[in-house]
């Protein structure tokens, strides 16, 4: 596992480094806020939180331009925020309001924002891979120059569509990055029980795709790996498979009692591998950030979230006559 990304080797400006930390803080606060709203009965249905996985979401999107595209998963709030989807509209969507990203018709699992290259979260495990492969085909056929990054979890790598998509993208040399957030569990299924190989990245070799396993909780490592993959894609060298190890702090969804893993394991990841704490520490050590500045950022994030909740709560529910609109173009 390559793990040695340092600020010295990074060409990222201090301002950008701080904005990366800020985006991670926004994601965590967004998810924490949703937890509270859920407990207050303000959120309908369920949701899948990505607390603990902020470095993969933000890090993978840093090398992408607005024209580049992502496909996301059921655990997709972080991906959407990282790609630039408006947090106010996302909050309104979670509350099912007409001002939401999808007019209240999609909810947590279907947030999409085509204007910023977000081709959508997805309620079907692995479904983003064939779709992303198709979006990459458009880029190639129309010579548009954009790349597509597909987020998916470890569980998705046992779907047929994973294998078919990697093969197809490889034989057509498509500009796509397959980015696996290996958070060790597909719902309750431990990756150790569900696959018989050490690293998911090994699967890339079967399709002639360069692959690597990295620490997904060190954002600079994530950025560097995706930069390499983006460069390959833009140069017409085809897809890359990246496996980023990370951990979701919460259960799979709201109904999960987490009987399949230990509290010790959770504590260990939270205490020693919190991606936000690690990055903050690094920025402070390298004199890029002060505790004071961090405190200011926390306040700014909280204000943003308070405004988002206020906007969402005060927004109107969709009219009932929108039930039958947007079905056909």
């Amino acid at each position: 596992m390559s793990n040695a990304a340092t600020l010295k080797s990074s060409s990222i400006t201090p301002e950008k480094l701080k904005s990366m930390l800020y985006d991670m803080m926004v994601i965590r606060n967004f998810e924490e806020t949703l937890k509270k709203l859920y407990q207050q009965g303000k959120i309908h249905g369920t949701m899948h939180l990505c607390i603990g996985q902020e470095a993969t979401a933000v890090g993978a999107c840093v090398p992408l331009t607005k024209e580049d595209k992502i496909t996301s998963t059921h655990r997709g709030h972080g991906h959407s925020i990282a790609k630039g989807t408006d947090v106010m509209k996302m909050m309104a969507e979670l509350l099912g309001k007409e001002t939401g990203t999808c007019k209240g018709k999609g909810g947590s699992m279907h947030i999409a924002d085509l204007d910023v290259g977000n081709l959508g979260a997805n309620g079907i495990v692995c479904a983003g891979l064939p779709l992303g492969t198709g979006a990459a085909l458009t880029s190639k056929m129309k010579n548009l120059g954009y790349v597509v990054l597909c987020f998916f979890g470890d569980g998705a790598t046992n779907e047929g569509a994973f294998h078919e998509s990697l093969n197809l993208a490889s034989v057509w040399k498509l500009p796509v990055i397959f980015f696996c957030e290996n958070n060790l569990y597909g719902m309750s299924g431990s990756i150790k029980e569900m696959t018989n190989i050490e690293n998911i990245a090994e699967r890339g070799a079967a399709y002639g795709i360069p692959s690597e396993t990295i620490s997904g909780n060190d954002i600079l490592t994530v950025v560097e790996a995706v930069e390499r993959a983006v460069e390959r894609a833009r140069n017409g060298e085809g897809p890359t498979l990246i496996e980023a190890h990370t951990y979701r702090w919460e259960g799979h969804s709201r109904s999960d009692a987490r009987k399949y893993r230990t509290r010790e394991e959770e504590k260990d990841w939270k205490k020693h591998r919190d991606p936000i704490a690690l990055f903050k520490q690094k920025l402070i050590e390298e004199n890029i950030l002060t505790e004071e500045e961090y405190g200011e950022m926390e306040k700014k994030v909280q204000t943003l979230m308070d405004n988002a909740v206020e906007f969402a709560v005060n927004s109107k529910a969709p009219d009932l006559d929108t039930l039958m609109t947007d079905i056909y173009a």
Partner: peptide, 27 residues
């Protein structure tokens, strides 16, 4: 390029066609 022979991979090629359609092609 425009008459694309695919692997025998219905799950991938169908999604690929949908993804291409969502992004501006008419497959």
């Amino acid at each position: 390029e425009r008459v694309r022979i695919t692997p025998i991979s219905e799950a991938a090629i169908s999604g690929c066609a949908v993804g291409a359609a969502m992004t501006g092609m008419r497959p």
